[in-house]
């Protein structure tokens, strides 16, 4: 048991924390921009990893491109445009809102609206049923009360 735990600990310790190489930036602001960008851009080879996480050859090349763009003082938008011009919106984990992606962005709202309408109709029906059962159950009582009022004896 002890050996197993030790083995697991050793494994945990050996897992690479960063797939990325060390980058030198003259300006810490640029370093932050670079880090944020590669965390948000998607690797096309291993599609569930960002450029920052991926060990793929292409991811390293694309990190190089992003690094150069940022280091030469261009904006984040320019880095993103560089990649989307070549690889499409697929590289963005957060796709832009445009006709193609309208359903993607509006979908949750649409489903919420749909669920709201169904819920509302369901609640209204329940209320109606409650009123109906109330009147049926209490009709006799009402009748008896009426009779009692008309003729107390």
């Amino acid at each position: 048991m002890k050996t197993l735990i030790l083995l697991l600990l050793a494994l945990a310790g050996s897992s690479p924390l960063f797939a990325t190489e060390i980058r030198e930036f003259a300006d810490p602001d640029k370093a932050a921009r670079y880090e944020r960008l590669i965390g948000e851009l998607r690797c096309l080879v291993c599609q569930n990893q960002s450029l920052a996480d991926s060990d793929a050859d292409l991811a390293r090349d694309l990190r190089n491109e992003v690094y150069e763009i940022i280091e030469t003082g261009q904006s984040e938008e320019e880095a993103i445009r560089f990649l989307t011009d070549r690889y499409g919106d697929f590289v963005l984990y957060r796709p832009p809102i445009k006709p193609m992606t309208l359903l993607l962005w509006g979908g949750p709202l649409l489903i919420l609206l749909f669920a709201g309408v169904i819920g509302w109709r369901y609640a209204a029906q329940r209320k109606l049923e409650a009123i109906r059962t109330f009147s049926e159950a209490d009709r006799d009582k009402l009748e008896r009360l009426k009779k009692h009022l008309d003729d107390p004896h």
């Binding site: 096309l44 090349d61 690889y87 499409g88």
Partner: peptide
């Protein structure tokens, strides 16, 4: 050799 043209062509696989 360095894959720069590949990147310009959007090559990923």
């Amino acid at each position: 050799q360095d894959g720069r043209v590949g990147i310009d062509l959007g090559v990923y696989g």
